[in-house]
Amino acid sequence: MTSVINLPNPPFDNRRSGPRSFQQSQVLDVLRALPNGHIGMKTGEVVDALGRHRDKPGYASVSRTLARLRKSGDVEAFESAYSQQGGGLFYRIPGRGHVPA
Results as ranks from 00 to 15, higher is better:
residue 44 G to P: 00
residue 47 V to K: 04
residue 11 P to M: 09
residue 25 S to K: 10
residue 38 H to V: 06
residue 45 E to K: 10
residue 50 L to K: 01
residue 44 G to M: 01
residue 75 V to E: 02
residue 85 Q to G: 07
residue 72 S to K: 13
residue 37 G to A: 07
residue 92 R to T: 06
residue 3 S to Y: 12
residue 55 D to L: 03
residue 32 R to C: 00
residue 101 A to R: 06
residue 92 R to P: 04
residue 9 N to I: 12
residue 92 R to C: 08
residue 47 V to S: 01
residue 54 R to G: 04
residue 59 Y to I: 13
residue 22 F to G: 02
residue 97 G to K: 02
residue 86 G to H: 06
residue 25 S to V: 04
residue 34 L to P: 00
residue 73 G to I: 07
residue 73 G to V: 04
residue 67 A to T: 12
residue 42 K to R: 15
residue 95 G to L: 08
residue 31 L to T: 05
residue 38 H to C: 09
residue 63 S to C: 06
residue 48 D to L: 14
residue 29 D to G: 13
residue 52 R to Y: 14
residue 11 P to S: 10
residue 83 S to I: 07
residue 73 G to P: 01
residue 30 V to P: 00
residue 63 S to P: 00
residue 81 A to R: 05
residue 63 S to E: 01
residue 10 P to S: 11
residue 67 A to K: 09
residue 12 F to G: 01
residue 88 G to A: 06
residue 92 R to I: 06
residue 61 S to K: 13
residue 45 E to P: 06
residue 74 D to V: 00
residue 36 N to D: 15
residue 14 N to L: 11
residue 29 D to T: 05
residue 31 L to N: 01
residue 11 P to E: 09
residue 100 P to M: 09
residue 33 A to H: 07
residue 52 R to E: 00
residue 29 D to L: 02
residue 76 E to K: 01
residue 75 V to F: 03
residue 10 P to M: 12
residue 88 G to H: 07
residue 21 S to W: 09
residue 41 M to K: 08
residue 62 V to C: 05
residue 26 Q to R: 14
residue 72 S to A: 14
residue 47 V to E: 10
residue 74 D to E: 13
residue 78 F to Y: 15
residue 26 Q to N: 11
residue 89 L to Q: 08
residue 56 K to C: 02
residue 19 P to T: 02
residue 85 Q to F: 12
residue 91 Y to D: 05
residue 40 G to T: 08
residue 44 G to Q: 05
residue 72 S to C: 15
residue 79 E to I: 14
residue 60 A to C: 08
residue 53 H to Q: 14
residue 6 N to K: 14
residue 23 Q to E: 10
residue 28 L to W: 08
residue 59 Y to T: 14
residue 18 G to T: 10
residue 44 G to S: 05
residue 4 V to I: 15
residue 4 V to K: 12
residue 70 R to P: 00
residue 80 S to K: 10
residue 91 Y to L: 00
residue 22 F to P: 00
residue 70 R to S: 15
residue 85 Q to D: 12
residue 88 G to S: 10
residue 79 E to W: 08
residue 14 N to G: 02
residue 69 L to Q: 05
residue 56 K to I: 09
residue 95 G to W: 12
residue 96 R to F: 09
residue 20 R to G: 03
residue 93 I to P: 04
residue 83 S to W: 01
residue 27 V to T: 13
residue 65 T to M: 03
residue 33 A to E: 10
residue 27 V to K: 02
residue 87 G to A: 03
residue 10 P to W: 07
residue 60 A to N: 15
residue 99 V to D: 03
residue 32 R to D: 05
residue 36 N to W: 11
residue 15 R to I: 01
residue 40 G to Y: 05
residue 27 V to Q: 03
residue 58 G to M: 01
residue 30 V to Y: 04
residue 16 R to V: 15
